[in-house]
Design a binder for these strands. Structure first.
Lengths: 109, 109
DNA sequence: GACCCATACCTAGCAGCCCGATGTATAGTG
DNA sequence: CACTATACATCGGGCTGCTAGGTATGGGTC
């Protein structure tokens, strides 16, 4: 979800393109399906984080374009903060281990 | 959940201590309650990621100690990998923005 | 002893999300 | 004209997150 907000922060897009962007950003490692994405987009809409408009060009497929609202931008930065807190905690937990391991290797080696 | 696995990877512990450790690792930013943790621990047990034993010392409170199984260690490294994929994708998404911003600051400053 | 706080564990229940399956429709390609 | 890629959507079972509530003991204070 933070990832979708981050992508929308790059500029207005639509569902299918978001899926492609996720694939691109993760080097094909993240396998999101449309069945996961569209309900999320609807939810973001309900939460007031995005605004959506239909675009139905004469010679093309109809698309629903989404863009971030100010509230969505707030949510994004808040989620980013939260992400960093968890990331930091994981780093810490992981770090002590590395220290212990390298100390061990020093003693053993 | 990856965080709990990471903490258990530091060594055998019990529920209450895990809560304290989370508080410690996150600098008080992560507010986990016991009502969230214990069901998670039970689930980890069901999944075979941890093993648990009671310890009821004569002059102390009974505690349930948990430790990682090999399966849990696998899960941990897999989750870590996943975390890094998402982290990397987020980094990428933020990067183009940061570049634009720093360029802007250079021009402005 | 009465009282309270911190420690230590647990479950119930509801709201909400994940995610696979499925449905609809159109543009472009061989 | 079949087939693929694009483009959107919903549904339902299963699982999760989180709040609220419940039990019990050790240690400290008055």
């Amino acid at each position: 979800m933070p990832l979708v907000l981050a992508i929308l922060d790059e500029g207005e897009t639509y569902g299918y393109a978001i899926l492609k962007r996720i694939d691109e950003l993760s080097g094909g490692e993240l396998e999101w399906t449309d069945g996961m994405l569209y309900p999320l987009l609807h939810r973001l809409d309900r939460l007031g984080y995005v605004e959506a408009t239909w675009d139905s060009p004469p010679g093309g497929r109809r698309r629903r374009y989404y863009r971030l609202t100010p509230g969505g931008r707030n949510a994004l930065s808040e989620q980013r903060r939260q992400w960093e807190v968890v990331s930091g905690a994981l780093q810490n937990a992981w770090h002590s281990f590395q220290v212990a391991n390298s100390a061990l290797r020093t003693v053993e080696g």
